[in-house]
Amino acid sequence: MQTASSGKAGDRRSAYFSQERIVLAIAVVMFVLFGLTLPGFLAPGNLLSLVQSVSILGILAIGMALTIIGRGIDLAIISTMAMSVAWVIFMLGGGTPVWQAVLLGYLFVVCIGLVIGFLVAYAEIPAIFATLAMTTAIYGFTRVAFVDVDLLFIPQSASWTREFGAGYVFGIPIPVIAFAIVALLAHLFLRHTKPGVFIRAMGDNPLKARIAGIPTRPMMLLQYVISASIAFFAGLVLATLVGTMNTRVVNSTMVYDVILVVVLGGIVLSGGRGGIFNVIVGTLLIGIFLNGMTIMNVSYSIQNLIKGVILLVAIIIDTVLNPRDEQTSQQGDI
């Protein structure tokens, strides 16, 4: 069990009622309910489409989860995704070979990750602010330096890569496979590599981690480079799936959706707790929800409303089960 293995006494006490289990239970209930009431919900085609529709969100959520587990947050994840991929498409439009464009795009993303990491680790700007500011800064920089339009279409010159994200392997859509691969890699990274363990330790108690000799600052850099890389990958899959990249998603509420998934899954914002399994549970719940709502033809605004209420309820339940008190709550812990 993920939460139990993180080794906190408090976790074990409330393990039966951990948010992850509650959400899983809600997901199962919703699944059964939709399966019984909505015709065609359980059709294999629909289930695949269900997972596929939230795969991109899931991939982004994994990147976000990694930073949150390390006691950070990456609000710039959407901006990184959109702007880097927009630049790649822009280069493709200008006739740059695919591999070269992707490589340059990736270098750009690594730079973004390093800058964010530097701001958080060395300039000691709270992650919420550093990434919030970077959201607009990345957008502005890319628009000034690289791309001068909002909406980019992948040109036909991009050959097979043009519809990479829309492909199938053994009947499974590429985005689902991409989600699975990223999830697996992230899980292995978190549980079985030193930096992964370090990041979890850092999220649990940054001061002690530092005293214990963990290079916390380089680890933070790594954390943001990874989340930026994941964002880039998600962006490539997304763009090749639909053939466009709209840089306006930077200003949309998509980043809130990503946080919603992460938090719904039971990853605590103060860091140190939770794993990739939580993200998968959160993603599935949202997937089932969105799919059911679409089948029921519930309007977009009402879906948003319900999503917000679910998020609120999840936080309330979490707080009731794992209360904070005045004596132990941290300063500046918002």
């Binding site: 970077m134 607009t136 800064a137 990345i138 957008y139 502005g140 920089f141 890319t142 628009r143 000034v144």
Partner: peptide, 10 residues
């Protein structure tokens, strides 16, 4: 151009 505005605010 709009990019500058965002860049500077950020």
């Amino acid at each position: 151009p709009s990019g500058y505005n965002s860049l500077l605010l950020g």
